[in-house]
Amino acid sequence: MTEREFARGGSERDQSEDVSLPQAASSHLDVSDLLDEIDLVLEENAEEFVKGFVQKGGQ
């Protein structure tokens, strides 16, 4: 097994498929350009939203 092929894991997959190893990029997350977009996703009334997020206990 080559380094690239391990991605197939224990599962049976097409051996001819050329799957490259995911590369871990090393750049910092550039959030400045991202915040404006995230603004659109965020709940408008954060305080109410957070207050309303109440869960029952689990394991």
């Binding site: 957070v50 997020f53 109440v54 869960q55 029952k56 206990g57 689990g58 394991q59």
Partner: peptide, 8 residues
């Protein structure tokens, strides 16, 4: 939930 409850 940030209010004292956890689930696993």
């Amino acid at each position: 939930d940030g209010k004292g409850v956890s689930y696993g």
